[in-house]
Structure formats: C-alpha cells, structure tokens
Nucleic acid binder design. Structure first.
Lengths: 169, 169
DNA sequence: TATTGTTATACTCTATAACTATA
DNA sequence: TATAGTTATAGAGTATAACAATA
C-alpha cells in the first residue's frame, strides 16, 4: 500500500499514483460512499448486503448464508434483526416444514431502492468529473478487467448482484 | 445498483457493465482482497487500518480517533485489543501526563508489511490481465478521477495513507 | 473548567457448538 | 441419520455516557 518505489508501470503525468495505490484508494472511496449512504438510513453494510441480495430472490436461510458467505447462525440473527425492523419477512416454506423463505417487505424494498439510488448518484457524480470520452474509456477498461478476472476464476460476472461484496469467511 | 436501463453512457463493446456497476464491482473485489489477506493473518479490516495508519505515525489516542474516524472510546478498545496481541504499544507521553502515544511493535510492523505485500501482489496480478497500454491508461484515468475528486473536496490526496479507508462517522 | 483517556453499558455482527423439529 | 433453522455463548467492533487524572 505504501512504498514509493516504482518497479512496474511508470505512467505518464507526474504526481500520478501507482496503479495499485490508485485502485485501492478508489475502492475505499466507493466502498465508503455506499457505507455512508446506507448509514443515512441507519443500516449497516451487512444489512444493505442482505437487502440487496433479496431484491431479486426469496432464498431460504441456508441459501442466504451461501449467498452472503456467512454461517447459517449468523444469517439467522441477521434476518432476525432485519425482521424486527420490518425490512424482511420470514415465510414458512410450503414444501419443507423445516425451511423458511426470506423476503423483502415493502419497507425493505423501499429502503434498498433509496440507498441504491443515492449511491448510484454519488458514483455518477464522481464519474462526471471526467470528460465523456475518458469516462467511456474507464468504463470499458474496468469492464474488461472484471471480465478477465471473472473468466480466470470461473465466475458468472453478469449474474452477480451488485450490492453484494464478494466476501468469504 | 441493479436496473438494466441505460440512461447515460452506452459504451462500446456489448455485454459491458454500466459504469456505476463496474466501479462498484471492482471496489468490492479489491476491498474483499484486502480483507481476505488480512484474515490470513487473523486481523480484521479495522485492525489492518489501525496498523496501516501507524506505519508512519505515532499518534495519541485522540489523534488516532480522528485518523480512523472513530470515537475515542472505540479507539481505546481497538488499541487495547491490538496491544493484547502484541501488535502495538502504548507509550506514555512525556509532555502531557494524560496522553499516550500509540506505536507499532516489530510484530505489528512485520504483520502489516506482509498483508500489504500480498495485497499489492493481488492487485498487481489483477492488473496484469490487461495489456500494458491498457494498464497505463487505466492508471492514468483512475489517478485523474481521484485527483479531481480530491480537489473538489479539498482533500490532500497524496498525504492519505493507503490502507486507510476514507471513512467518517 | 476543559481535555485525555478509560470504563460501563448496550447493540450489531460473527463464529462454534449444541439443540429442536423435520425429512 | 441427515438437514434446516434457532439458541447459547463468546468475542470484536461500535457508540454514548459517566468517570478519573491532569492541564
């Protein structure tokens, strides 16, 4: 993260950050933006991730645990707290009486939509600091980078839900 | 974050992510990379941030709290846990007997260096998936984006310590 | 009186282990 | 027996409020 030595890539303009540092800073900036927007609605990143995942799914606790890369007990508690706040609902499965399905409530859907919208606005505003052509170039490069990474890891890039941080534990 | 509607910027290649989605995904990817590397050494992002900040500073608890954007009580506990693990040391201030200075121990310095190195290697490896020219272009664009953002917010971009997420609270 | 740091308390988030109910 | 989910327990991380020591 630190280190002023420039081994690889010594790009053009002076005062430029090393590639790694620049990407790291940008990541923290964007991550922090989402965190701040979520906090405005009194939800943590974890809760936001939960709500984000539920936007297009109604998973069981077990499935949810896999999606969020959490233990089922952690997931159970996470859902319990969200339920207490009226953001999600537990729906008993009709096929397996051991299972429950977790679904967004209207309040939960509304909340995640608001957080989403303000976060996207923030990132758009950030991008607007670049000229249109640079913006397009950046988008293209980032897309290719992600695509290359996904291919190399056998991940389905376009299936990934966005709010969901690629965590493991 | 979701939404397939493409208002702004409809860049070149098909199957390309929206600008916002791409940046968000990349951010989570990089954030997760650091988290995973830190976890390999049994330290959380918070502890990593603490150690990162201390690499080139010996702040008081109060200063540390400002640097990490945490309450002083949270900082006190954070330092206490790190101290218990032998990663940092509390040094009584000679000028103000109420104050303590927090410094990395050798173990702490070694740990943060290792996490740093493996994280940088990860990001470098990610970047190596692009052609040299694309890599340089990306670096340049990211640098300019961060510079523009920093200027617009009166932040000292090049003074920022890298591991340190730009959080507020 | 004001400031520095710690402590008490409370809540979220996480994991492991033990348990219940169902399959 | 195996699986789905919850609960008990423990610890990190966070904040607010109250406190002790020093300025």
């Amino acid at each position: 993260m630190r280190s002023r030595t420039r081994e690889k890539s010594e790009p053009g303009t002076r005062g430029e950050l090393r590639a790694v540092d620049g990407l790291a800073q940008l990541s923290f900036l964007i991550h922090g933006t989402l965190e701040r927007r979520a906090a405005e609605h009194d939800v943590s990143m974890t809760q936001t991730r939960l709500l984000g995942v539920l936007r297009d799914r109604t998973p069981t606790i077990n499935e949810l645990a896999k999606l969020l890369a959490l233990d089922k007990s952690s997931t159970s508690g996470l859902v319990a707290r969200a339920e207490r706040r009226g953001l999600v609902a537990r729906i008993p499965s009709t096929t397996d009486r051991r299972s429950v399905e977790v679904a967004l409530t209207d309040a939960g859907r509304s909340l995640v939509a608001q957080v989403s919208a303000s976060f996207e606005a923030d990132v758009s505003k950030l991008l607007d600091r670049l000229r249109r052509s640079d913006r397009d170039a950046l988008t293209s490069l980032v897309s290719r980078l992600l695509a290359a990474h996904a291919t190399a890891h056998g991940v389905d890039l376009f299936a990934t839900t966005d709010t969901q941080a690629p965590q493991r534990r």
